[in-house]
Design a protein around this nucleic acid. Sequence first.
DNA 1: CACAGGCCTGAACGGTTGTTCAGCATCTAT
DNA 2: ATAGATGCTGAACAACCGTTCAGGCCTGTG
Lengths: 253, 253
Amino acid sequence: MWKKVVVVVYQYGASRIRHNPLDAAVTHNITGTGNTSPPKLEARERIRDAAIELFGEHGFNEVSLKEIACRAGVSAPLVIHHYESKRNLRKVCDAFVTEQIRRTKTESVRIAGPMPRNHALELIQSHRHLLKYLLQAFAAGGPEMDDLFDTLVEDSLEYTAEAEQLGLVYPSTNPRHRAVVLLLQSFGALMLHHQMKRHLGASPLDEESEGLLPYMAAVAEIYTRPLMNAEMYRELMESQQAFEREISDASPP
Amino acid sequence: MWKKVVVVVYQYGASRIRHNPLDAAVTHNITGTGNTSPPKLEARERIRDAAIELFGEHGFNEVSLKEIACRAGVSAPLVIHHYESKRNLRKVCDAFVTEQIRRTKTESVRIAGPMPRNHALELIQSHRHLLKYLLQAFAAGGPEMDDLFDTLVEDSLEYTAEAEQLGLVYPSTNPRHRAVVLLLQSFGALMLHHQMKRHLGASPLDEESEGLLPYMAAVAEIYTRPLMNAEMYRELMESQQAFEREISDASPP
DNA sequence: CACAGGCCTGAACGGTTGTTCAGCATCTAT
DNA sequence: ATAGATGCTGAACAACCGTTCAGGCCTGTG
């Protein structure tokens, strides 16, 4: 039954989150027909969805309870009545989005097979609002997000290893570190989606799903062909090592 | 007595900032000789520096005027007296940081020669607070930041081309797009510096400058050796092309 | 029918925010 | 010495925030 709730919520979210009386009637209809177990439906889920959408769009502190309530078609005190406080609402949203993304990820992994595409791009097409929320939550921090990031790393590590055995991905001297940096780069690039859209014409986070080819092509080229020389590599590492040696020589007396 | 505490805190903060000798000389000169042009020194700069530091650390909306004033060792209304409003203060900070980074960048380019290191890493060692502010400002958006990002792209493009002629960097089918994506990835990874520190042990944004080798090594490996197969590349591009074709076939009736 | 209980709301409260205002020192110029 | 800027402050203000409270609507149950 919990699943059913989730499905309804998702469909609701996919329909751009209009909270008209019509939609309210529809949800009421759905709840009224079948479920015998304690429903507790309707407004509670609408509030959560509105919060997720608005937090994802504008950030946590930029959104007031009144705006959330307004988008959910309810009053502000009701938000407090259902979720104890705004902070707790955020915690619930964090947990919900985390769970939803975890499920979506494993599903998409099953479907896509051992294709180590960009994690971010994997999620984008169907769950844009979740991804937006996720990015805001990553920026804001919090233990839920730390856990989620960890599982993303583990998942990435896992099916990158599969792809490596298939010869699609080349081995690394430190697969875990590589996976982490790739995740950081992928999600980080999405956090700058505004600049990405300005310079590349489109971003995975805006409404139209088209025009991503320039970005995909650039990323693909960077990841399939070496970008810089081995000599470059050596110089980079040596300068950094020299710098760190200099630091540690100077500081610890 | 409270003031004294504040002042100490500020000086400690300022000693990390390390103003340019040029700026220090100018300010001292003005105050000492009684320049005819509007002096308005001392507190005004302190407020600006405090604002930059706090905005960079906690974000624009997370910092109140009172906190800025407290760190600058003045009262809140004085902030309004010097800078018309909080929004205007942010605009001034944007312009100042932008200008400072522009200057620093050209200097570092001169010094480093045609070494297309990470732009971010280039700035980090000496101007961490500026970089923190920059990342927050990128996240918040604004025309000043758009302009700055554009010049970063142009600069990157320019001396990547130099490095290319020296054989340190390999050519691209679209150098501009590649430069943009590299910038997005570099800065974006820094925006997730919390996760970076958790998984890689250190981040360029925290106080100690050591321990960056894991990150540098992973980045260097990604950029010097191909990550995935050409077959992988083909599949990636084709799936995206197919997806976009499907979209454009369905939508424009 | 009465009545209890779960949604839900309007009004109101305390706290914080950015900003305004009147006035206090300090200094310069007349 | 007087007048006038200038730099700066404490007190106060309106607006908004998250949250509380008392009560109204609706539904199910005796």
